[in-house]
Nucleic acid binder design. Structure first.
Lengths: 331, 331
DNA sequence: CTGAAAGCGCTAACAC
DNA sequence: GTGTTAGCGCTTTCAG
C-alpha cells in the first residue's frame, strides 16, 4: 500500500491539501483539477488511510462498536443486520463483540474498542459494570443502549420493556384459562433480560391469583435442545402444569417436539408459549403463541439515532419500539 | 479522553518512551518505575490510542475484518462466534460486514475496511470481483477465505467442498431408494455455494441414472417460510417426486411443516433432506436427514490461522474441515 | 481556488 | 534502564 496523498499531489503537480479536498469531496478546486486528481488516484491504486485521518482529526472516525450478548442468537442476528445495513448506507464501519452475558466481558470489550476512538457505541442491555459506566461517561462517546429500556440511559436507549412482555404473556395465559403455569428458562443469573420477563410473568400471575407453580432455569444455551430436555425435567417435577412459558421460541419449539414425542397434545393437555417471534413460529403445524420483537427495526433505529446524534441532531433519550403478543394455536 | 503517554510521563517524571514500554509490557525499565507508571496511568484514567499506535507502526494493528454473506444466517452466526472467541482470546478486534451475496457489496466493504489498515481479513467464499482480488494482492494483507474450498486461494483457505456435499447427498438419496428427486433452493444466481451443492447433487443423480427431475429456486431468503411455500410450488409442478433436497435445514423444516399440513407422510410419501446441521434438525419428531457443517470450528481455525500467519508461522494454503452427512428419519 | 505549516499520539531506532 | 529524535498520512488553520 504505497500511494499517499503526497504521491498523488506530486504527480498531479498540486499540493497534497488540494488532493485531500478533492478526495473528501470538499470544495475549493477547479473541475479540471478534480478530474486530474481522481484519475491519478485511480491509476496509483490509492487507498486512503483512515487510521491517519481519524488520528489527525478525531471527529473523522466512522467506526461504530456494537456489543451483543451472543453472536449465535437468531434475534440478535436480525438486530445486527439492521445495524449493518443502516451503517453501511451511512458510510460507517462496524466493530463487533459478544459479551456472552457477562458484564466483565463487556467491559473488557469496551476498553478495547474505545481505544480505537470510535464515533460511537451500541450496547445491548442496560446493565453495565460501574467501571464501564465511568469509562463511557468519561469518554463522552455517543452510546445507544438497545434491547432493553432504561429510565436513565447513559446516553440514548432504544428498545422495549421485558417486564411488560412477561406481564402480557401472563395475562394472556390467564385469559386462555390456564391456571397452573410453569416457566422454562436458561442461562441462570446471566441473562438479565430473560429474568425481567420471568419477573413480569410472575407479577401478572400473582395478581390474577394463580401464582407461577414451577420454574426451571437451565445452565445451558437457550436453544431447541434445552427446550426439549428442559420441558421433560420441568414436567417431571411438576406434572400437573397446564401451560409452560419458555425463555424464547427456540426453546418453545424444542418443548413442542418433546410434547409430540410423548404424545402430549398441545394445547389440550398443555399450553406452550415462546418469546421472540422467530420465523419458524408461524409455520409450525400449530402456530406458536409468542411475542414478536422488532429486531431489525431496533438495529436500524439504533444506527440511525447514533449517526443523527453525531451530526448534532436532537434525539429523544428513550425510544420505545413496542413488542406484540401473537396469539397462536399452542395456548 | 485527555490523558496521553506524555501526561503520564510528566507526572511520573520519566520520558514517554519509558511509559510506552511499560504499558506495552516490553522490557527496559525498573520494577519501581513500572509500578509508578501503572499507578499513574490508572489514576489518570488513561485509555491508549490504538489509532496512533497502528498508524505510527502498521504492524501494530490488531484489527481483523470479516465479511459474511448474511448476518441473519444461523450457520454464519456460529462461524462468527468461533472467530470472535478466538480473536478475543488472542487480543484482536473484529470488524464485520455482510455482502448479501453480492460480490460488488463485498468489494465495497473490503475497500472500506482496508482503509483502516487491518492486520488481516477473513472472507466467505472463493469468488470475488477482479478488482477485489487486485486490491487484496496489492495490499499484501493476510486473507483467509473460508466456507468454500478453492484450489488457488488468494492466500489461505479453510473450508469444505460444496460440490462434494451435493454428491454425497445425491448418493444417499439413491441408496435410500429414491428415484424421482427434486431440489428446492433460494437466492437465485446469488448464492454461489448453494449452486455448487445443487451441481454436485445433479452430478451424482445423473451418474446413478436418475437425473434430478425438478428444480425450484426461489427469489427469497432461504428460511422456514420459503421452504414451506416453496415445497408447495415445487410439488404442484412435479407431484410425482419421491424426495426433495433443500438448500438448507431451515427450508427443509419449512418443507416438513408443509407436508404435515397436507397430510403427506415423511418419509413414506416423500423424503426430505436438509443441509447445515442446525440444532433443531436433531430433535424434530423425525430426525432430519442433513449434512453437518463444522461452523464454529471453521471460524476458530480461520482466526487462529490468520494470527499464526501474522506471527510468521507457516500455514498450509488449504485446510479441509470435512462435513458429515447425518442420516435421519426423513429420507 | 490553492498552498504551507503544524500537529494529532505513538513507536522504532539509536544514543547514552 | 532510560531518553531523544524522527516520522507515520492526514486534516485544520491560516495565508495567499
Amino acid at each position: 500500500m504505497k500511494a499517499s496523498l503526497e504521491d498523488i499531489a506530486r504527480v498531479a503537480g498540486v499540493s497534497k491539501m488540494t488532493v485531500s479536498r478533492v478526495l473528501r469531496g470538499a470544495s475549493g478546486f477547479s473541475d479540471e483539477t478534480r478530474d486530474r486528481v481522481l484519475q491519478i488516484a485511480q491509476n496509483l491504486g490509492y487507498v486512503p488511510n483512515r487510521l491517519a485521518a481519524a488520528f489527525g482529526a478525531d471527529q473523522a472516525s466512522t467506526l461504530v462498536g456494537m456489543c451483543v450478548p451472543r453472536l449465535t442468537s437468531g434475534l440478535f442476528g436480525h438486530v445486527l443486520d439492521g445495524v449493518d445495513r443502516a451503517l453501511t448506507r451511512l458510510g460507517f464501519q462496524l466493530m463487533i463483540g459478544a459479551n456472552n452475558h457477562s458484564l466483565a466481558e463487556e467491559e473488557a470489550w469496551i476498553r478495547q474498542v474505545v481505544s480505537w476512538r470510535p464515533a460511537g457505541l451500541i450496547l445491548s442491555g442496560r446493565t453495565h459494570t460501574p467501571a464501564t459506566v465511568d469509562l463511557l461517561r468519561l469518554s463522552a462517546l455517543p452510546v445507544v443502549e438497545i434491547w432493553d429500556l432504561t429510565t436513565r440511559p447513559i446516553d440514548l436507549a432504544i428498545g422495549f420493556s421485558h417486564v411488560d412482555c412477561g406481564v402480557e404473556m401472563g395475562q394472556h395465559l390467564i385469559r386462555r384459562g390456564r391456571r397452573r403455569i410453569g416457566y422454562l428458562g436458561a442461562l441462570a443469573r446471566a441473562d438479565v433480560m430473560g429474568a425481567a420477563r420471568l419477573q413480569g410473568l410472575q407479577q401478572a400471575l400473582q395478581q390474577a391469583g394463580h401464582p407461577l407453580e414451577a420454574v426451571e432455569i437451565l445452565h445451558d444455551a437457550p436453544g431447541f435442545y434445552a427446550g426439549y430436555y428442559g420441558l421433560e425435567m420441568l414436567l417431571a417435577r411438576a406434572p400437573e402444569l397446564d401451560a409452560v412459558a419458555f425463555h424464547n421460541d427456540e426453546m418453545a419449539i424444542g418443548g413442542l417436539a418433546w410434547c409430540q414425542k410423548c404424545g402430549l397434545r398441545v394445547p389440550e393437555d398443555i399450553g406452550i408459549a415462546g418469546w421472540g417471534g422467530m420465523e419458524a413460529a408461524s409455520i409450525l403445524p400449530r402456530r406458536l403463541t409468542t411475542t414478536q420483537v422488532p429486531t431489525t427495526a431496533i438495529g436500524k433505529a439504533a444506527a440511525e439515532a447514533l449517526v443523527a446524534r453525531l451530526q448534532g441532531a436532537n434525539i429523544p433519550e428513550v425510544t420505545v419500539l413496542p413488542t406484540r403478543l401473537i396469539p397462536g394455536e399452542t395456548v
